[in-house]
């Protein structure tokens, strides 16, 4: 019965993810579009070519660093909000939840446009800085690393918040009360009880955000500059400018392997079912 319930999503994953991934892998290894996967002689030439390029390494390392940075920034921003949502009985929690969902409701393109209006040379922040005589001219806030991190952190914020809030909500408040009743100050209770018990949610959120950031395209393209190229943009360039599908597929395979590796870590170390066994 349980197996049957998984059938629709399994079918969808096989058709929409596994088969295209195999085709992509085949193309990266020298296969042609329109022929059976792996029908041609396999060649690792494109992988050797892309990894021989210092530019590829620069883009790869930059993608990983930015994705980690976004995950860390998001964890720091989302945790207090998640704590409030999990513990507060305020009538405002519904409103806060609504605010937390706005990145998903607004959509990536609109949100990116919003940040461009805020951070641009003639944007709201620069206007305010100059109006308050804090700067004499526009400050470069956009088209760089900071703008990319801000944009990615914003769009993925909900995916960080929800796992943390869910785990915090599942922690028995009696444990924290016991700590307090034994004389521990609030900060110590938080550091020794709440935080360790909620770590699973933090880790799950960070992994989701990390993977989302690794695959981000629109935000790095529009909010980033010429020196902030991330892997999906490099894939796009291979596909549409160089017209080199094999190189694009090789880079896409690298991106998929990174995502699967991170997923494997999540399943190995932060799988709730595993930890309760």
């Amino acid at each position: 019965m349980n197996t049957m319930l998984a059938a629709p999503i399994t079918t969808l994953m096989v058709i929409g993810y596994v088969l295209p991934s195999l085709l992509m892998l085949s193309i990266s290894l020298g296969g042609a579009i329109g022929s059976w996967p792996f029908a041609a002689t396999l060649s690792f030439g494109k992988y050797i070519e892309v990894f021989s390029s210092s530019y590829t390494w620069r883009v790869l390392v930059f993608t990983l660093i930015v994705s980690v940075a976004v995950a860390v920034v998001n964890a720091l921003l989302a945790y207090p909000m998640a704590l409030y949502l999990a513990r507060s009985r305020s009538k405002w929690t519904g409103t806060v939840f609504l605010i937390a969902f706005t990145p998903l409701a607004v959509g990536m393109n609109m949100m990116t446009m919003g940040w461009l209006i805020m951070l641009g040379k003639n944007g709201v922040i620069n206007y305010a800085l100059q109006a308050l005589s804090l700067t004499s001219g526009p400050v470069p806030l956009v088209y760089g690393l900071i703008a990319v991190v801000i944009g990615l952190a914003h769009i993925s914020f909900t995916f960080m918040l929800l796992p943390i809030e869910s785990v915090l909500r599942s922690i028995d408040p009696a444990i924290e009360r016991a700590s307090r009743s034994l004389g521990a100050p609030p900060w110590r209770t938080f550091l020794t009880i709440t935080l360790p018990l909620s770590f699973e949610g933090v880790a799950a959120g960070m992994l989701i955000v990390f993977m989302q950031s690794c695959g981000a395209f629109v935000i790095p393209l529009l909010l980033g500059g010429s020196s902030t190229v991330m892997l999906p943009v490099a894939i796009w360039e291979q596909m549409t400018v160089a017209n080199d599908r094999a190189a694009g597929a090789a880079l896409a395979t690298v991106l998929a392997v990174i995502a699967l590796f991170i997923l494997a870590i999540q399943l190995r170390y932060f799988n709730p079912r595993r930890s309760t066994q």
Binding site: L116, I117, G120, K121, N122, L222, G225, S226
Partner: peptide
């Protein structure tokens, strides 16, 4: 020219936005 480029754009729509926002 590079130091004086406010942004190297990736799509023509982005170029239009840079122009219309007067960046």
């Amino acid at each position: 020219v590079r130091p004086y480029v406010t942004k190297f754009w990736g799509t023509a729509i982005e170029a239009e936005r840079l122009i219309l926002s007067r960046e």
